[in-house]
Amino acid sequence: MRKTILSFAMLIAASGAARAEGCFGPGVPLFHCTVAGGANSVDLCLQGDVAYYRFGPVNAVAEMLLARPVTEVHMWPWNGIGRTIYEEAGFTNGAFDYTVHYAIDRIPEGGEMTAEISGGVTVIKGDQTMAQMTCDAGSVTINDVYPLYEAKAAAGQCWDREAFQWGPC
């Protein structure tokens, strides 16, 4: 059922041309949006057992590029209930955590036929939010972090639905 729901989300959110955004070479794009009126983009990508976070100007050198083994990436999968699909993926860089999130409202107001997709990135240091950027309206073109879930499982990690954390299988 999860793959069916995420496949539905991918069909809504990603066009064939958009699939190339946010990745380098043969990687799998997980997330893409623009922030700050289209000046910057936020991208997540998976290449084998390494996940990448990229932030910076669109079509230019990244201001920040983090590469982490999937076992070091924080990933909170959708719990499977409710009208909103919500997932996060987080990267630690020293004292800072960069958490990318997206949400899909499966029952949009007004009876519209397309799901509303929102997203953004939150930068946290310790217990203090340093920055919170919201994706520009309509700019979330890729939003499927399930390949990261599969990569973590392939690396020997299992998601504990009761404790809401990853651990050894």
Rank of each mutant, 00 (worst) to 15 (best):
L6K: 08
L11V: 11
S15V: 11
R19N: 14
A20I: 13
E21S: 15
C23V: 15
G25D: 13
V28D: 15
F31R: 11
V35A: 00
V35W: 03
V35R: 02
G38E: 07
G38Y: 08
V42Y: 01
L44E: 07
L44A: 05
L46G: 06
D49L: 14
A51C: 05
Y52T: 11
Y53S: 04
F55N: 06
A60S: 13
A62S: 15
M64V: 15
A67T: 14
P69T: 02
V73D: 08
H74P: 05
H74D: 15
H74I: 13
M75H: 15
W78T: 03
W78C: 12
W78M: 07
N79Y: 10
N79K: 14
R83M: 12
R83C: 08
E88F: 05
A89C: 02
A89N: 02
F91G: 05
N93W: 15
A95W: 07
D97A: 14
Y98T: 07
T99P: 01
Y102R: 08
D105F: 02
I107Q: 14
E109V: 09
G111F: 11
E112Q: 12
A115C: 10
A115S: 13
S118H: 04
S118P: 06
A131C: 00
M133T: 00
M133E: 05
G138M: 03
V140H: 00
I142P: 04
I142R: 10
D144C: 04
D144P: 04
D144I: 03
D144Q: 01
K152Y: 06
K152L: 10
A155V: 07
Q157M: 08
R161I: 02
W166G: 03
C169E: 06
